[in-house]
Design a protein around this nucleic acid. Sequence first.
RNA 1: CGCGGGGUAGAGCAGUUUGGCAGCUCGUCGGGCUCAUAACCCGGAGGUCAAGGGUUCAAAUCCCUUCCCCGCAA
Length: 310
Amino acid sequence: MRIGFFGTPDFAVPSLKMLAGEGYTVAGVFCQPDRKSGRGHHVSFSPVKETALGLGLPVFQFEKIKSPEAVQQIKDLNLDLMVTAAYGQILSKEVLDAPKLGCINVHASLLPKYRGAAPIQWVIINGETSTGITTMFTDVGLDTGDMLLKRAVPIGKDETGGELYERLAILGADVLKDTLEAMESGTLTRTPQKEEDASYYPMLHKEMAKLDFGQTSRQLVDRVRALCPIMRCYASLNGEEIKLISLKISETATEGKPGEVLAADPKQGLIIKTGDGAVEAVQIQYPGGKAMDAKASLLGKPIAAGDCFE
RNA sequence: CGCGGGGUAGAGCAGUUUGGCAGCUCGUCGGGCUCAUAACCCGGAGGUCAAGGGUUCAAAUCCCUUCCCCGCAA
């Protein structure tokens, strides 16, 4: 079976490795073009590209996968099946119709819930206790195609978005493997998504990392761990933007307005009033500095109780 | 050559503008106080001020070079 693989970030790597490892013919690997990134603006390869090169697979990087050249390239590969996993571009009907058997997508949520580009972070932000992987036939809508296999996993109480991401990437490869085996043995069934149960969540935006201390302690803690480590949540204190790397719910019951510093000393730590209680900022990071324990930071850079995060 | 911040005792920081004894909080070690303590008091140890070069009577501080860390942007 000739497979075309479409993916770009770390999430797609286990799936690609599985395909190669299970003996499927990966006729081409498509990923986003190389971008200048990081400090110094050096060009770096995406994880999928690195992996494909390591496996000796041909790599294709189109600025627009809908372009005539890209479509022609896909057709020329004479594919039986396309597999997508966090590719990063919307596929057109023309592309989806190219392979004989269609296109299978690996999505990191229990569809039809959490359609969209960042389901892993959103489930944590919303305080869900479980999520999973759904494989599906891709259609022209956004994560709306018929579902194939689904597998659920519990979300750890303190699990970060990064940790869940890693687990789901591996689970995704596993479910994809089962999906392909079922397809080959003819036991695969497709289940339409119930639109009335569907939910969609957008891509992550910068401003999502700004903390609103009017939220509950639980919401704040969930947001910080959900966005960790791809975005560091922050709030302003006395004109400085301080990143709050990790929070935990504090039992300190005290009066105050949301965002107010209830305590800030090396013994108690940095305690901040929230909408319904208080949180302790366990790890913080000042502009230009490294992430560090809040208690250690307070030894050198004191914060006055009564100051207020905004 | 994308823009910017930083490197000072085990940890966190001040000192650099204007060159002039290496400082602060905490930890650590010893002693004291106390029914007791994470509290309080007294004392000690711990530094190649990231590295190299230059200027100077004198450099953490000014100039040049290198290394490393961080944020933004992408």
